[in-house]
Design a protein around this nucleic acid. Structure first.
Lengths: 240, 240
DNA sequence: ATATGGACTTTGAGTCGTCAAACGATTAAT
DNA sequence: ATTAATCGTTTGACGACTCAAAGTCCATAT
């Protein structure tokens, strides 16, 4: 049974290795996990010896099948817990990430199953991040359209917020840019680095790097976010 | 911030020191926590140096006010979580103890407040153990009447089950002896060590040590932990 | 081609929680 | 009162995780 530290390492590697089978640089892990590079080397060696990943010294790290499976399980827990905290415990959208960070290591499979059932087997968490499913643990990072890249003057639908920091999430909430909302880019000025948007009834302004963290799809596309807390309502989109 | 290991030590000491201000023997802690006596000595010294308890070498251990406060907070978390798992997640009565054992160290005060509110500020968990309140953290172990000591041929109400082991709880559940149910001792035979009871519609037989783990009150008595005599029978022992 | 800078690894050390085994203290029994 | 038995403490060690600082590798700029 991996410790919660190891689980965090796995998760960090997974979310950094979604695209391609490129190795993940140990330096980026040190960054992400807030430890020194030496610590990463040590841990990575020990995890390699446990068969969770492969380590190409001086090049990077790649999850094995077993490591990836563990990592997906942790990610699934994290995202289901986040969804649960928002929909059932009515907690604030912006603060659940940190809570889930702790809970994901303490929740048993039994509890997770109950939560999943109560939520009606959602396939995305409140930030629009996909919830890896128990049976089909694909981890998709598909849609590459964001407010930084989409066309101007067209309606888009916010699908996903690629940043968990409370301050950013609070900004999103304040301006109504949560997943599910409809938005149009009014103007994008590379010179000033400013993106101006139109929401339903008000405008919003943000920087280009920030706009890139807001994934969108064409307004017509089918919704992806978890259903409103009602297990019974016909929105269980993932029935098997 | 105490680690979860320290929290477990605190909890173990608290539940063993409810009666009197007698010191808790380190040996009983080793037993309870499943570690060697030497480990207890070591940990206890470190906790003493942090002001969580006082250690009389070769005699035992006593919580300080600060230690007791921490311990009560952990116990409160544990019992609220248990209640939540049963009432909201509809989990099995007999298995929630182990789940709560892990969750109690991962749940933040914020989440706890939401859980408490959703449950309507209960004052006992599904096993009848009192939930220390946020404001009045008294820890009572009053009622000393059990199926091993109560009078025969009189109606009693089960208040509390003093054993968290799944197998015992499953037995309780199977025979319908859960807190809130009504029971009468039909016969108690010290020679054979057997207690025979009558439930609403069927009999039950158990050993004396087991009977002692089932706390009861006179059937007429109002729910043990004070307060508004809400006639909403059944299991919701404390609305509001 | 070689020197420099940046990324990674190694080394030595520290904390926490744990064990086994040797050692002391206290109590109970002769 | 001396001895046993029991209970508690000490000691030395280890695994997991971490750091700081010294060492190594390698790409590239001159």
């Amino acid at each position: 049974m991996p410790t919660s530290t190891v689980e965090n390492y796995l998760k960090a590697i997974l979310v950094r290795s979604a695209d391609a089978d490129a190795a993940v640089a140990t330096g980026s892990l040190a960054e992400a996990l807030g430890v020194t590079p030496g610590t990463i080397t040590t841990m990575v060696k020990s995890m390699a010896s446990r068969g969770l990943l492969e380590h190409q010294p001086r090049e990077g790290v790649r999850l094995t099948d077993s490591g990836r499976a563990h990592a997906l399980a942790v990610l699934r827990k994290h995202r289901l817990v986040e969804t649960f905290l928002v929909q059932v415990l009515k907690m604030d959208w912006a603060e659940v990430h940190e809570e889930a960070e702790a809970l994901e290591h303490a929740i048993s499979e039994r509890v997770l199953l109950r939560i999943d059932a109560i939520l009606g087997h959602p396939d995305a968490d409140p930030h629009g991040d996909p919830i890896p499913s128990a049976k089909s643990p694909q981890f998709d990072r598909d849609s590459s359209l964001s407010l930084a890249t989409c066309e101007a003057h067209r309606q888009y639908r916010v699908e996903r917020i690629l940043d968990q920091s409370p301050s950013f999430l609070e900004f999103i909430q304040r301006t109504g840019l949560m997943p599910g909302s409809t938005v149009k880019v009014a103007e994008r000025d590379p010179a000033s680095g400013v993106v101006r948007c139109e929401l339903r009834d008000h405008p919003a302004t943000l920087g280009l790097p920030e706009a890139a963290k807001i994934e969108v799809t064409e307004a017509a596309a089918r919704p992806r976010v978890a259903a409103e807390a009602h297990p019974s309502s016909g929105s269980a989109r993932k029935p098997r």
